[in-house]
Every structure is written in C-alpha cells, then in structure tokens.
C-alpha cells in the first residue's frame, strides 16, 4: 500500500546500527574461529583446528554442564513458583494482585551486579544472614560457606537468579490466567473439584503456551547470563560456577587466546540461535 522504497529509508537507521555493532561482529567472530592468532593478529587459516580443542577442554564441558543445570533449576523453581503464585493470586482481589505482583517483580528491576553483591552478604560464611538464621533455628550444622564451596556455589547462585526471575513468571502467567474462561472454573466447582484438581486440570494445561514461552526464555537467558557470576564467584571456586560466557571472557581478556575465544563464542551463538529457532517454530506452530 505504500512505496516500498520508503520502507528501506525507515529501516536504514536501525539496520545500520544493528549491522555495525552486532551482525558484522558476529560474522567476524565466525571468521576468526578458523584462524590461528599471533599476539593479537590474525595469523593463518587453520580450518577446524581451533574447534578440535573443544574436545579436550574440560573447562568448556564443565561450563556447558553448568549452563544445562542452570536451565533445569530455573524450570524447577522460579517457573513452578510463578505458576503456583499466579494461580493463587488469580482468585484474590485486584488490589492484592497488583500489590503482590509489584513486590514479586521488584528484584528484576535491580541490576544483577547489585543483586550479586547483596546476596554475597546473605551467603557470607562469617556474618551472612543465612548461616545466622540457620543458627537461630538450631540448624547450625547446615551452615556453609555457600559461594565458596564447590558443592553449594552453583545452586546458591541459582537462588539469586530465581529471585530476579520468578516475578517475571508471575506477571506473564497472570496475564494468561486472566484470559481463561471463568465458566470452566465454575463448572469444576459444581462438580465439586478442589483447588488442587482445578489447578492441575484447568490452569496448568491452559497455560501451556506461557510455560513454553517462559521455559524457552529461561533456557536462552541461562546461556546468556554473565553479570551475576562475574561479580560473585567469577566462575569459582575452581570451575564450580564456570559458564560459557565467563569462559569466553577469560579466554579472550585474561588468556588472550583470540582464536579459541572465537570458537567458544561460535558455540554459544549456535546454541542460543538453535534454541531461538526451536522456540519460534514451537510457538508459531500452535
């Protein structure tokens, strides 16, 4: 209905910006991954030689595993919590809903850097609130140096991630619940169904699309996150909280191994883009 030429003028500013600072660098990264590097300079084409190093890089596999664990933990805790909370909230007064949704959402507005600092204190083994609380409850034997022990670090950080994420899930689920036909619940009431039965048989199935969206969103975010780890553990203790993004950062800025940093970036990109196409396809096909 309008001159197509105008469309390109409308697109140009956003497209140029995007190409210059995102798309072109991505193409470069892919190119870099096929070269050997000598003190920061492109050296020679080596084909897939850089990629071959992935096989023996145990830190890479540990990082990938941690990313995967992060996805599972996110699906298991904040997503489920969001589902449950929004189902409960749906039956409350509008003012209550608005107030609680806002409260649950506040952590997401806090920069992850600051969230990391705050929770670093809560987890502090000496004066941290968590150990203090356990002590008061007479559970002192469960106290840990939460972020400094390999067995607890990743899990403890995930609680922080969940803290910033569950409110988002509540908001998304609430929007979807409000579009469920109330007569479904009324019919269930007449049949004498309890709250749990209605939750299981009506709410959960009808929220499948939101669950799918949030699940894929969480999976992609789990591959992308960096700030939280970097300000708390920087991947440690040892490699216990290493993830792909921190591995890329260290390989590039600390080791200066440009070719291999490019390889890791490519792997990261391939994973997120596959997840994205999967989501696009899944969400579109319904």
């Amino acid at each position: 209905m309008h001159s197509p030429r105008t469309a390109y003028w409308f697109l140009a500013p956003a497209l140029i910006l995007y190409l210059a600072f995102v798309a072109v660098p991505i193409a470069q990264v892919v190119g870099y991954s096929f070269f050997s590097w000598d003190s920061g300079q492109l050296d020679q084409f080596v084909g897939f030689a850089n990629f071959a190093r992935l096989g023996t890089d145990s830190v890479f596999w540990a990082a990938l595993w941690h990313n995967a664990v992060w996805v599972v933990l996110t699906l298991a805790f904040p997503l489920l919590a969001g589902l449950l909370l929004s189902a409960i909230l749906a039956e409350r007064r509008p003012n209550t809903v608005r107030a609680l949704a806002a409260i649950y959402f506040i952590p997401r507005t806090i920069p992850l850097v600051v969230a990391g600092i705050i929770w670093g204190w809560i987890y502090n083994p000496i004066f941290g609130l968590l150990n203090y609380g356990l002590d008061i409850l007479g559970l002192g034997q469960f106290a840990h140096a939460w972020l400094a022990e390999e067995s607890t670090a990743l899990f403890s950080l995930n609680v922080v991630g969940a803290w910033t994420f569950f409110g988002f899930c509540v908001v998304i689920y609430l929007a979807a619940i409000q579009s469920i036909d109330p007569s479904l619940y009324e019919a269930a009431d007449i049949d004498g169904a309890g709250w749990g039965a209605k939750f299981r048989d009506i709410t959960v199935p009808l929220l499948r699309n939101s669950t799918l969206f949030l699940g894929l969103y969480a999976a992609i975010e789990a591959m992308r996150f960096f700030d939280l780890i970097w300000v708390t553990t920087q991947g440690g203790p040892g490699y216990a909280t290493e993830v792909l993004t921190t591995h890329v950062y260290k390989t590039f800025f600390l080791v200066g191994d440009f070719g291999y940093a490019a390889v890791l970036s490519v792997v990261l990109l391939v994973i997120v883009l596959s997840l994205a196409s999967l989501s696009f396809w899944l969400l579109r096909s319904r």
């Binding site: 956003a14 995007y18 600072f21 995102v22 798309a23 072109v24 660098p25 991505i26 470069q28 990264v29 870099y32 992609i220 591959m223 992308r224 960096f226 993004t245 890329v248 950062y249 590039f252 440009f258 940093a261 490019a262 970036s265 490519v266 990261l268 990109l269 997120v272 883009l273 997840l275 994205a276 696009f280």
Partner: peptide
C-alpha cells in the same frame, strides 16, 4: 533482527572489542 534477539553480548565482544 529476530536472530539478534538472543545474541549474548559476551559472544560479540571478541570481535566488537577490536572494532
């Protein structure tokens, strides 16, 4: 543009920094 929706900043930085 859609593809850019999921690009992690750390994966671009390797080339962006030099640019």
């Amino acid at each position: 543009f859609l593809a850019g929706l999921v690009v992690p900043a750390p994966s671009v930085i390797v080339a962006l920094y030099g640019n």
